[in-house]
Computed example of a mutant assay.
Amino acid sequence: MFKLFKTIAKAGESTTKYPFAPYETSDDFRGRPEYQPEQCIACAACTRACPANALTIETKPNDNTRCWQLNLARCIYCGRCEEVCPTGAIKLSQDFELAVANKADLYQKAVFKLAHCQVCETPFAPKKAVQYALDLLVQSGLEPEQLQIRSQQLNTCPECRRKANMLEGENLMKGNGIQQEVLNEGY
């Protein structure tokens, strides 16, 4: 019997002391998603990429808000949200302990204000997303007059942009470079 205890003492510990000591995870371990709302632009790329529908976005034009929500109970820790996020607002952490006493603690939520169209005043996109697009244009080195035109386009809703780009029949013919005589001949 003494020989057995001596062998065990030489072998060391055969199990981890978890939960009394922290459990060491590998560097590529995918744990709880950590969300930084100050970096998020509410573009909804993560919600489209999430296979478990753990991420949702709800736009409320009446309240002038877009609500982003993460349900950790549904998350499968696949990492798709981290891959598609253009600003790095979601990162998977090493944390895997998700036990909570209250179900509401499994939800993370952020609310974003919507930008209004400069033509019709309807809310159409998150303000942070519009500003992010403008910042990218500034970084690209766009000339000031082009930047002003793009800024006006970005601050206009898609419907008003579509209406502004629609051309009358006469302008359509001139804009395409098609001669009027050719069109009158039935081509």
Rank of each mutant, 00 (worst) to 15 (best):
A104Y: 10
Q108G: 09
K128V: 09
Y107I: 13
E97F: 09
L106C: 04
F124G: 02
D95N: 06
L98N: 11
R80T: 15
I76K: 06
A101W: 12
F124P: 02
L98G: 11
E97Y: 04
D95V: 13
D135H: 05
A110Q: 02
Y132W: 15
E82L: 07
G88E: 04
V111T: 15
C81F: 12
H116N: 15
K127M: 10
Y107F: 14
A99Y: 08
V84K: 04
E97V: 11
L92N: 12
A115S: 08
R80A: 14
A129N: 05
E97Q: 07
Y107R: 10
K109V: 15
C85R: 03
P86E: 00
D105K: 08
Q131A: 12
V130N: 00
T87F: 06
V130S: 00
A104G: 11
L92R: 08
Q108F: 12
S93L: 05
C81G: 11
Y132G: 01
C117A: 01
P126S: 01
E121M: 15
E83T: 15
A110F: 04
I90Q: 02
C75Y: 01
C81S: 11
G88D: 08
F124Y: 11
R74K: 14
E97K: 06
V119L: 06
N102P: 05
G79V: 07
L106I: 07
C120W: 08
V100Q: 01
C81Q: 10
K91H: 14
A89L: 04
T122W: 01
P86Y: 03
Q118C: 08
H116G: 05
V84I: 13
Y107V: 14
A73R: 13
Q108W: 07
G79N: 04
Q131K: 13
A99C: 05
G88L: 13
V84Y: 02
Q131H: 07
A104I: 12
V130K: 00
P123Q: 02
E82H: 03
K113S: 15
Q94G: 01
Y107K: 08
E82I: 07
T122E: 09
V100A: 02
A125N: 04
F124D: 00
F112L: 05
V119T: 12
V100F: 02
Y77A: 03
E121V: 15
